[in-house]
Every structure is written in C-alpha cells, then in structure tokens.
C-alpha cells in the first residue's frame, strides 16, 4: 500500500462511528414517536361504563382529551388528580373522555368509586381502539382539537405541565 493513502482510513472509519455514537446520546429509546398525531380521529363506537354509547362523532365540535387507563395500572392513580382538576376547571371548554384499556367494566367502575369519578364518559375498549391510536400501554393521553384532528400525545402519567401544553395544542388556555 502506498504511504500516506492508508491514513485516510482513520477519518473514514472514525468520523461516522463518532457521529453515530454522539447522535444517539440523549435520545430516549422508550418513547416512540406517534403516527397518529396530525391525523383525524379514528371512527369508533363503544359502550360506556354508564350504559350509553360513545362514538367519534360525539367528540367533534369541541376540543377533547382522551385518556387511556386501567384499574391495574399504577401510574394511572398518580395522574388522576390532574385529570379531575382539568375537568373541574375547564369542563365547559374541553370534554374529557376515558377509555378503559384491557380491563373489566366492574373493576374499572370500582376504581372510579375509589379514586374519584370526574363525571366524564368512560368507554370500554376491546383493544382495537387502543391499537388505532397506537397506544403502547396505559396511561396514555391524546389531545384532539375541535375539528377532530389529534394534536398531541402524552405517554405515561400526565403532569400538570404536560396537560397545559396539550391543551394549548388544541386551543384551550389552561392557566
């Protein structure tokens, strides 16, 4: 091999390796970017805990917050006060909807009696609505604007700040 040329191998190998190593630092592999943000609400028609039926048409016309939860989900207990607070203060501007995820209606109802029922409808999902939203696991919260377009998504328990940001994305001022 001719002298000198071989040293080119060093930057050729090291630069991409370095770029690759540093580019990924700080990226959390557990959060998966959502595919549904920016898209329209999927169509659905599901029974609710109080015996009525909830469809996607019910949600169009007013900003909505859709929260996937289950009685077996620990972090759902932590985020529940944030949802109750939002419902109480902003119930006129935004509609909250719960979706019971992979759970029995009886257990879900018992959970609500224990941790506080905010009075919003809770649809019981057989699993396919959660898949339509690309839910990875409860709790997960989606913010839908008045036109029925999904605008934001929070994975894991919703904090007061995440709630305010999500509401801002659908044109509701939470302050």
């Amino acid at each position: 091999m001719r002298s000198g040329v071989r040293w080119l191998l060093l930057p050729v190998l090291l630069l991409p390796v370095g770029w690759l190593l540093f580019a990924n630092i700080g990226v959390d592999p557990r959060t998966i970017p959502s595919r549904v943000v920016g898209k329209a609400l999927p169509t659905f028609s599901l029974p609710t805990l109080d015996g009525t039926t909830l469809t996607d048409a019910d949600l169009v016309g007013r900003p909505a917050v859709i929260n996937f939860w289950a009685s077996w989900c620990g972090p759902c207990v932590d985020e529940h006060p944030v949802l109750l607070d939002a419902a109480q203060r902003l119930g006129g501007e935004v509609q909250l909807v719960g979706v019971v995820y992979q759970d029995s209606p009886e257990r879900a109802a018992a959970w609500l009696r224990r941790y506080g029922d905010g009075g919003w409808p809770d649809a019981v999902d057989d699993g396919s609505l959660a898949i339509d939203f690309g839910v990875t696991g409860p709790p997960e919260t989606y913010f839908v604007d008045a036109d029925g377009i999904i605008r934001d998504r929070v994975v894991g328990p919703v904090s007061t700040r995440a709630m305010a940001e999500g509401l801002a994305a659908i044109g509701v001022d939470a302050s």
Partner: peptide, 30 residues
C-alpha cells in the same frame, strides 16, 4: 440508555464518556 432492552438502565450521563473511549481505543489501535 441508547437502546431499549430488558436490561437497559435508565439514561445516564456516562454516554459521552464511553463514546470518547470507544473512539480513542478504535483510533489508537487502528
């Protein structure tokens, strides 16, 4: 914490340190 795995520990600040060490070992050896 750059890959998702059963074993992965929470994201930490040692990433850049190991990245530099890898580059030094690879660059030095090569």
């Amino acid at each position: 914490g750059v890959v998702a795995s059963v074993h992965a520990f929470t994201a930490s600040s040692i990433g850049p340190w190991f990245a530099v060490a890898i580059l030094l070992a690879l660059g030095g050896g090569l």
